[in-house]
């Protein structure tokens, strides 16, 4: 079962299908609105944001999964697709932003400019800009230009983007939406476990005190 899953997840096609299918669901109201859908564009906007958060949380979980279970084939398979899934998160964020732009368009962009200055929207915009920078530096050549270390540090901004996205999502509702916990909670747990494991393994093995080794 795990071997089959691993084989399936190693395929780029599987990942493409998994990334594109939710977009079909999110964009459907625009092409076939249900008669009871009061504001199809708003439905699309919310769904795109939701998928963006899920994809971002998912791609960030790949590394801790591999660190925690290095020999697990599924984790290895997933880590082949970090770039593709990461760019997918940016694509959803951009679509979400575009839907918002259309949603506030009232013959001009006055409402847009007024709203974008509010913390709730600035936070979302911040996450989008980070994902944009990470996307344009996701090509192999960028690693050469920047140098491995600088590139790695730059791409650590993905964690900041995730924190901003979670904040933005929580702030979107009048009452705290539990989905933030479902989406970003597991990632937070994995990250804590990963940091803990990396600390333990980077310490000298127990029983080998400096006195003994000398």
């Amino acid at each position: 079962m795990s071997a089959f899953l691993e084989k399936l997840l190693r395929s780029k096609l599987t990942i493409w299908v998994l990334l594109v299918a939710p977009a079909v669901w999110a964009l459907k109201p625009l092409f076939a609105p249900a008669p009871t859908d009061a504001d199809p564009l708003k439905t699309t906007l919310l769904h795109l944001g939701l998928i963006g958060c899920i994809v971002l949380a998912a791609v960030l979980a790949f590394t801790p999964l591999r660190v925690l279970w290095p020999r697990w084939g599924v984790a290895q398979a997933l880590n082949r697709h970090r770039r593709l899934v990461g760019v997918g998160a940016f694509a959803y964020a951009l679509l979400h932003f575009t839907a918002h732009l259309l949603h506030v368009y009232d013959g001009g962009f006055g409402t847009f400019w007024k709203e974008i200055q509010k913390p709730f929207q600035l936070i979302g915009l911040g996450a989008l800009l980070i994902l944009f920078v990470l996307t344009i530096t996701s090509i192999n050549a960028a690693i050469r230009w920047l140098g491995g270390k600088a590139w790695k540090n730059l791409h650590r901004l993905a964690y900041v983007a995730a924190a901003l996205a979670a904040w933005h999502q929580a702030d979107a509702r009048k009452i705290f939406p539990l989905q933030v916990v479902w989406i970003f909670g597991p990632l937070a747990v994995l990250e804590v476990a990963r940091i803990w494991k990396q600390r333990v393994t980077s310490l000298p093995p127990p029983g080998t005190t400096p006195a003994q080794t000398s």
Partner: peptide
């Protein structure tokens, strides 16, 4: 605090894009 009240979406008007 989180959005503008200068304009409003008209429910059920303007097709899918509203």
């Amino acid at each position: 605090p989180r959005w503008s009240q200068a304009s409003e979406r008209v429910i059920g008007a303007g097709g899918a894009f509203g």
